[in-house]
Each structure stands twice: as structure tokens, then as C-alpha cells.
Design a protein around this nucleic acid. Sequence first.
DNA 1: TAGATTGTTAATCGATTAACAATC
DNA 2: TAGATTGTTAATCGATTAACAATC
Lengths: 210, 210
Amino acid sequence: MRNNGISRAVTKRLPRYYRYLTALKEQGVERISSKELSEKMKVTASQIRQDFSNFGGFGQQGYGYNVDYLYKEIGKILGLDTERKMVIIGAGRMGQALVYYQGFSKRGFTLTGIFDKAPSVIGTKVGDFTVQSLDELEQVIKDNDIKIAVIAVPKLAAQEVADTVCDLGVEGIWNFALVDLKVPSNCVVENVHLVESLMNLAYNISVKES
Amino acid sequence: MRNNGISRAVTKRLPRYYRYLTALKEQGVERISSKELSEKMKVTASQIRQDFSNFGGFGQQGYGYNVDYLYKEIGKILGLDTERKMVIIGAGRMGQALVYYQGFSKRGFTLTGIFDKAPSVIGTKVGDFTVQSLDELEQVIKDNDIKIAVIAVPKLAAQEVADTVCDLGVEGIWNFALVDLKVPSNCVVENVHLVESLMNLAYNISVKES
DNA sequence: TAGATTGTTAATCGATTAACAATC
DNA sequence: TAGATTGTTAATCGATTAACAATC
């Protein structure tokens, strides 16, 4: 992938564009203008054109955007054309739920294993996977070119796990633990802080009531 | 709750403030200045003061902020002082995982039931709960003053569920389905779109590699 | 060609940061 | 009182929207 220097405000919108384009493709729509897409997505047409132009622009004057082409290009930008292997660390409820979670594999994310340190869960089955000991993690990451580690351990254990996997060459951490992880620059973190999302909901309910 | 008109950029940061204040309280810290907090949280002190001043300001010149007081006030703003009952709709993997998810109950969110329409799961146990039929949902929501519905059904079923619960007076939807829900103005939605979060991670990995 | 719609430049709006007077 | 630190105003920066020439 080439381009950096593109603002986070823009890149955060890409997955949503991708989702709408997926739907359009499924519906057999061939082309779409920024205006039509803006109506569907409830954003301005200007923003759509501005966003895409960051990556060079994918449209054609007088025509609009070819859905299939745009879909593929955004997929490439998002790095969905590369298969990335990942492991889940922590076989608690969240870790287990993520094993079963669809939507990964469709998008080039391949789950390779799930790990825990508790002897009581090591060796148990979770879907098609057998929970492995954390002691095996190093070997598995090295042997399988694992790119993503999903951290689903309690918050007090999370930083240590992050240190370990970054050391082992993992490039990205999908963090479900409620802490801000410190990672070296070779590693990026994406947080999923569920409680904070729920608090935002609570806030918005409170405001609405006021 | 009183104030609206506060920008989303600000309110989205409140849960993170709350998290840091919880930790400070646990550590027995009594007071903190915007400068100290800014160093911990890696934001500017200016932003912290600006954010809090939206709600009237909680500090004292020359002293800083009283941790306990600030913690309580932000809790109030977030609506965490009110107990809110919620139901989970969809007893698939995600719905089940959310039943077990800690962190709710600590924050004033009380789970009251889990529902599904598939006869094969109705009646089965998930933790302390028995999965109920969707047919019972209306009665349960009405009888128990349910404020929040967690939608954890497949995307094609999500809008219909949303229509139903909004009709029944639910005030907020915590949506795990990968669709943008249309809801009336008496209802607010907070989305948790996991695949999109994972795509953001993939993007950031791609950029880093470039 | 005429109409449509892009990509891009310019204008506006909002959010963040800096500065400082007020005051504990 | 003197020092510290707030709340707030002003300055800057960035993101969004509007406008339009370029062009398919």
C-alpha cells in the first residue's frame, strides 16, 4: 500500500463506504453517482468526492463511479486483498464469541488459533479450535506468520500480552481489554471498548430525556 | 439530565475520562490538575479544561480537580447514576457473549432477559437466563420498564427488531448488526460494528507497511 | 454536441490549542 | 501574600461544504 498522510477522519469512513458498495454490488448496481450514494448514506456528495479524491479519484465525469471498480479499490486501500492470519488471546466469553464470529474470514482474516493461560481451559474445544497454552504462542506466531493478535484477556493482563506479541512481530492488535496499550511503532492498535460504547449510548439517552 | 448542544467530539471523550478517573480513585489519588491528567491520557491540558468547561467546570484555580467529585459528576453526565434495564435480542454467539460480559452491571445497566425467535434455542439456558421467545418481548418490555435493547441478530432481521422495540418505548438501541438502523426520534442508536473496526486495523497495518 | 458529474479549489464551519486574566 | 491552576477568550488548525471549471 502506498499512501499515508490521509486524515483519520477520512480513513475511518472507508469501511462504511465498503459496506454500502458491497450491498450495491449484491443488488447488481453497476454505477452510482456521488449524489445517489450520498442520499443512501446520509452524507454530502461533496464529502464523498473529497474522500475519494484523497486516493486519486475513482470516478469519471458525467458518469459517476463504477460500483465494482470502486468496491475493489477501496478493498485494496483497506488491505482486504491480503490474507492476514490472526490469533485470539484469551479464551473467556469474548474470546470464544470471536472464534464464532463470522465476517472475518469473508474479509481476508484467517483465524489460526486461540490461547489462554488457565490450565482449566487449555485443551478444551471452541468451535473447530482447541485452546492452546500461552506457552505455545511464540512458536505458533513465528511458524505461521501471524499478523494480528486479538487481545481478549482481563485488563490487568493485557499490556503484558501486547508486549509479547509485538516482540514476536505481530503488526496489529485488536484490543478488547479496557486499557490503553503502549506499543512500539512497529505495532498498531485498534480498540474495541464495549463499555465505553454503552456509556455513549447512556449519555445520548440522558440528553434526549432532558 | 440537562445540557444538550455539546459537540459529539467532546461527549465521545467522556467515557475515557471516566475510566481514568476510576483508576485514579482506586489508586487513592485525591486531586489532579489538567496538566497531570493530560500527561497520563496523552491529550492536551487545554482540551481537558475546555471539555470540562462545557459542563460548567469542575475545578478550582490553584488546586485542580477533586478526583472523587469529578468522577461523580462525569458519571452523572453519562447517566450512570440511573439504573437502566436492558434486554438482549438474538441469542447467537454475540448475544450469548454479551450475557456473560461484565462491566454492564457495574455501571448501572441491568440485564433483564435474552430473546430469540429460533425454537431450537428458546428455553435453553445462557448463564442465569433462559432464552425467551420473541413473542414474549412486548410483554416483558412493558412490564419491566426496559430502556435499552441490544440488537444481536443477523443484519437482515435487525431493522424489524428495531422497529418493534422503538414502538414499545425503548429509548436506546445498542446495535451489533452490520446495518444502519432507521429509528424514530424517541430512540437513539449506538453502533458496534466489529468488522469495520477490524478493517480500520487492517488499513492501519497496510499504511504502516507502505 | 449537450448534459451530467467528477475532481479540485475556495469558503465556511467546527474543533483544538495557546494564552492569559481571574482567583483559589 | 505568592504560586498554581482554572475557566475562558482568542488564534490556529483541520475538516466539511459549496462552487465550478474540466471533461467524459
